[in-house]
Design a binder for these strands. Structure first.
Length: 109
RNA sequence: UAAAGUAGGCGAAUGGUCGCUCACCAUCUGGUGAGAGGAAAGUCCGGGCUCCAUAGGGCAGGGUGCUGGGUAACGCCCAGUAAGGGUGACCUUAGGAAAGUGCCACAGAAAAUAGACCGCCAGCGGCCCUAUUUCAUAGGGUGCGGGCAAGGGUGAAAAGGUGAGGUAAGGGCUCACCGCCCAGGUGGUGACACCUGGGGCACGGCAAACCCCACCCGGAGCAAGACCAAGCAGAGGGCGAGUGGCCCGCUCAAUGCCCUCGGGUAGGUCGCAAGAGGCGGGAGGUAACUUCCGUCCCAGAGGAAUGACCAUUACCCUUUAGGGAGUGAUCCCUAGGGGGAACAGAACUCGGCUUAUGACCUACUUUAACUC
RNA sequence: GUGGGUGUAGCUCAGCGGUCAGAGCACUGGGCUGUGGCCCCAGGUGUCGAGGGUUCAAAUCCCUCCACCCACC
């Protein structure tokens, strides 16, 4: 299981699922993100970046950085659905900042 | 050299590791190829395409507005005309106010049928004052009915302007020049320009106020629309008329249309990437553009791909050291450190417009200053 | 994708071509009171979202842009 890929079945794609996780999941705040967790057989990722975060370029960049984090650290993540919501300052971060902020909360030692 | 004007360009490159989307080949491990923009943006216009409606006409409603051309079309582009701005290169603006209605605050005498506050002018009548030693004459003030619109003052705007003659004072009252109006001619497809003659002059501004004139516009949008698969359950009421603004007209009489309640599904394929396409060249045209030949195939997602990290080399800024030019401010070269690199992400598609955009570059032109 | 709305004083809103843009609340100062509130008097307050244009004159009319909000499929 060496794959660092990010496949379609690892994405949360249905609006219904997003709502279920927001309502029933465990909620964690960090400086630039809100993270919802709900235990599941597979590890899956959903990302929400609203228009309040910035324009399309900034929103895409935030999503790509979060996907990169998921992909590279998949081995150490817990077995659950992860939903990450970006807050306002998020476009100013680079990958190092994102890693620093998310690893402390999500990764096993 | 500096400051401007116009037209345009570029929107870092290369390599490595780990990834994403699509196509093809292999086949369960992979390999090869392709993969954001000049604005992809805002959604301000106009087309293509699809469905619905449609004999045709009228009235609403909306849009455009100097002239000619270009175009699939446009509110866009090109060429010109006039007016205004700028020393200039250049830029900006554009139907009709003698069809009608309406508005023009404040100030001012008066604001669109002109009018007469101060004023100017002569006449008439009485009274008062002054001067000339009485009569009387002259001057001034006041009153009455007239003439005038030069001057004053108000305003954004005061009913042609300047000068001369003339007059009781004045006035296009007359004349010259300028402006305006009318008629004719010439040139131009035309906007318009020029010339000749006539008229003393009539016509304030606002249509981004209503409006008039000319031309254009059927409606909705790829969640259009077509097919496949899965699934369910229909019931009640209304319309006699319906026709996606209205009317006439026209057509139909149903398996039609509308409303309410209830039930089911929200999956896949196509549309969906060869186009008013790009590049190079020839021909026509002042140009926009058209046409012919050759050549190329260049994103296609669907909680939505085109990325992350590292290295090197260019570019710009700053700083340190060394060297060079110069009296100097400063500039150039070499080496090193630090920093910066904009605006922004395709969603059916094309033509424009508008707005955002760091640093840099190119061409032509103008104006200043200096040198030869 | 389509259609619509809002932006005016610190806040909530009027005003829709013509004096120096108003009202309520709030704020400041004074009076009243031993003190505070209530009450009374006086006062400050604005690039009318931004930039152009039309007009003698624009918050108002016309363009372009910005921000926010709503509705429908």
């Amino acid at each position: 299981m060496k794959s660092f890929g990010f496949f379609k079945w690892e994405k949360i794609r249905k609006k219904r699922e997003f709502l279920e996780i927001t309502n029933n999941g465990k909620k964690i705040h960090t400086r630039h993100f809100i993270i919802y967790l709900r235990s599941n057989r597979d590890k899956r990722l959903g990302i929400t970046v609203s228009h309040l975060v910035g324009n399309a370029v900034k929103r895409n960049r935030v999503k790509r950085l979060i996907r990169e984090f998921f992909r590279l650290n998949k081995e150490r993540l817990p077995r659950c659905d992860i939903l990450i919501v970006a807050k306002k300052g998020a476009p100013l971060l680079n990958y190092q900042n994102v890693y620093g902020e998310l690893s402390g909360v999500l990764l096993d030692k």
